[in-house]
Each structure stands twice: as structure tokens, then as C-alpha cells.
């Protein structure tokens, strides 16, 4: 298992899980707030649609294309 921080809370996920999986395992699955103030969640699952862009250790990256690493800090409201 890997421990990471999602929106300030510690979360343990199986090694090899994507950050997209962590969003569901530790939260409601949503990744960002849209221009029109709707919550959004991963859609294409393969790095195209950019809906799952989250802040990972301060850098904006795609949750679906990133594997969880120990100590990673993920924020969905950044």
C-alpha cells in the first residue's frame, strides 16, 4: 500500500493505482471545479480530455495518467 494526501487527508491505496483511482477511493471522485462552478471528474481516462487535472505536489497534472507515489500531495480545489 501507498500513503498519500488527498485534499489534506491521508489516504492509503494499492501500489500501482492511478491518482484518478485515489480521487474515488478517498473522495467523491471529482477532480476540479469548472469555469461555470460545476464539479468535474475524470472522463476519457487516457490523457486527452484534461478534466482530471489536479494539483500534484504543486504542479498541475493529469490524475488518470499519474501513478500514486508515497507522500504525494494531491489537491482538487487548487
Amino acid at each position: 500500500m501507498i500513503e498519500l494526501i488527498l485534499d489534506g487527508l491521508a489516504l492509503r491505496v494499492a501500489a500501482g493505482s492511478t491518482v484518478a483511482a485515489a480521487l474515488y477511493l478517498g473522495g467523491d471522485g471529482s477532480s476540479r471545479t469548472s469555469v461555470g462552478d460545476q464539479r468535474r471528474a475524470p472522463v476519457c481516462g487516457m490523457g486527452i480530455c484534461q478534466e482530471c487535472r489536479v494539483s500534484i505536489d504543486g504542479q498541475r497534472r493529469l490524475a488518470c495518467q499519474t501513478l500514486c507515489q508515497p507522500g504525494m500531495c494531491v489537491e482538487t480545489h487548487a
Binding site: 500501482g16 492511478t18 477511493l25 471522485g29 468535474r40 475524470p42 472522463v43 487516457m46 488518470c64
Partner: peptide, 26 residues
């Protein structure tokens, strides 16, 4: 992906998209 009412709601994904997300641990 084609737009239809409600397609931006969390819970709606691509078909291959869901498959990819499941493989990644969703």
C-alpha cells in the same frame, strides 16, 4: 464524445474511458 444534456456530471465517462479508469484502480 458527443454532448448531450448532463454529460458533464461526475459519473459520466467515456466507454473506453471507464475501462481505462477501472484498470487504473477506480
Amino acid at each position: 464524445l458527443l454532448p448531450f444534456p448532463g454529460w458533464t456530471l461526475p459519473g459520466v465517462t467515456g466507454a473506453g474511458g471507464l475501462q481505462a479508469l477501472i484498470k487504473g484502480g477506480v
